[in-house]
């Protein structure tokens, strides 16, 4: 059974851990203990692709206390596979270049002790 720790450990090693249902084939990122499509608990691990497209984004100007001083910073929801999306920090992109559809690639940086999922534009403008 996949736990949050599995995802975090994978992130710390630099990859995105997903789960794939052995019964119906549905893919979940981050991995889940139960397939939300068919209810099966028979799941295998899968490395999600690192390249995807921005599906939605924002630039945070009023941050929560843990990210105080980093504002403004961008956060995006990125689609890695059809319908498989994840949230991550956007780096190395100007507000003008950040758009829905932008091609990005995942990376993991350290924020204190914690690994942080982030994305960078695939082609530097």
């Amino acid at each position: 059974m996949f736990t949050v720790k599995d995802y975090r450990d994978a992130l710390a090693e630099g990859y995105l851990l997903a789960s794939k249902c052995r019964r119906c084939g549905a893919v979940q990122l981050p991995p889940r203990p139960i397939c939300p499509r068919c209810g099966s608990g028979d799941l295998e691990s899968l490395k999600a692709p690192k390249r995807g497209r921005v599906a939605a984004y924002t630039v945070i100007h009023v941050p929560p206390s843990r990210f105080k001083g980093e504002e403004p910073y961008a956060v995006a929801i990125v689609e890695l596979l059809e319908g498989i999306r994840v949230s991550g920090r956007m780096l190395d992109v100007s507000e003008a270049d950040l758009k829905v559809g932008l091609e990005v690639e995942a990376d993991v940086i350290k924020l204190g002790e914690e690994p942080l999922l982030c994305f960078r534009p695939l082609k530097r403008p």
Binding site: I60, Y73, C118
Partner: peptide
Amino acid sequence: YEAAVGFT
């Protein structure tokens, strides 16, 4: 998966 990457 949301707040930890910076979503408010």
